[in-house]
Write a protein that binds this DNA or RNA. Structure first.
Lengths: 143, 143
DNA sequence: TTTGATTATGATAATCATTATCAATATTAT
DNA sequence: ATAATATTGATAATGATTATCATAATCAAA
């Protein structure tokens, strides 16, 4: 999914829910779609603020929640206490290797795991929509 | 690992770190080892309080952190904002299916996933120590 | 294109979980 | 038993997120 498709998903969502299309939401979504990996609410706030200085903190949180609701983002909760958001997809899902010493964050993909997960869910009468896998340990520099 | 083995792990840890063996720590660990699934810090606080009314909130948090450090517990962070702790093992690791509608929490095991995870980590020069897998979706009642 | 109804915004207060502080108390090696 | 050190519990502080509310913006309908 590219940027303009994502924007369409968002605007369709806004319309369907009888919400309003505002410049703030557009700016926030646009900035979010230009990030590479993951971002926290406050990081996104500062990014948006550069282009749109009167943006409010709460609006960023609220919009991030909408972006999440319409399935364009994934939430990642880590030890730090801050919630990170990443773009869902670009087609593929990725998981995370997290070093418990230096905190480095490695993104990986593994299709086998995806398949096992689906099987596991179905065996339990469960319809999966998404998942989160984090592997903790030591990266090569901290071993 | 049974209760008394776990207690030994904890007391060895205490000794090795030059910490002190206190009644509070013993009570908290004991209560923790008697829970079935997962528990939050405040839930554990109230449980301990019944037997040991002068226990303090901070002591529960601190002890839970120790229990976690010596590898007797796993942290689970979910949407709710509260950190849950579960006993690590009883030998086997389990993952979670979480219903995004009703919030029900299903525990599952899948050895294949464990193996794939280890492989994935090693392929990335990463030494895994633990992991967290959460699959979100709809349980059979909410489908 | 104005109006009217409704939703959004932004500033900031409130909340909630967790952590830090610190004086008093308990533990442990000697 | 003593001295040295760590722990406790009460509570204040912190930090992230959410709620509040007056003002402003959006949008459907006339």
């Amino acid at each position: 999914m590219n940027t303009s498709e994502a924007k369409k998903v968002f605007s369709d969502f806004i319309r369907k829910k009888n919400l309003k299309a505002t410049q703030q939401r557009e700016e926030i979504l646009d900035e979010f779609l230009h990030i590479d990996k993951h971002i926290t609410a406050d990081e996104l706030y500062y990014k948006v603020k550069k282009k749109y200085p009167k943006i409010g903190y709460a609006t960023v949180y609220r919009t991030l929640k909408l972006i999440n609701e319409c399935n364009l983002a994934n939430e990642i909760k880590l030890g730090s206490g801050k919630t990170k958001f990443e773009q869902k997809s670009a087609g593929r899902h990725h998981d995370h290797l997290i070093c418990i010493k230096c905190g480095i964050f490695i993104e990986v993909e593994e299709e086998k795991i995806e398949k096992s997960q689906n099987k596991l869910a179905l065996n339990n009468n469960f319809t999966p929509t998404s998942h989160k896998l984090e592997i903790y340990g030591f990266c090569k520099n901290c071993r």
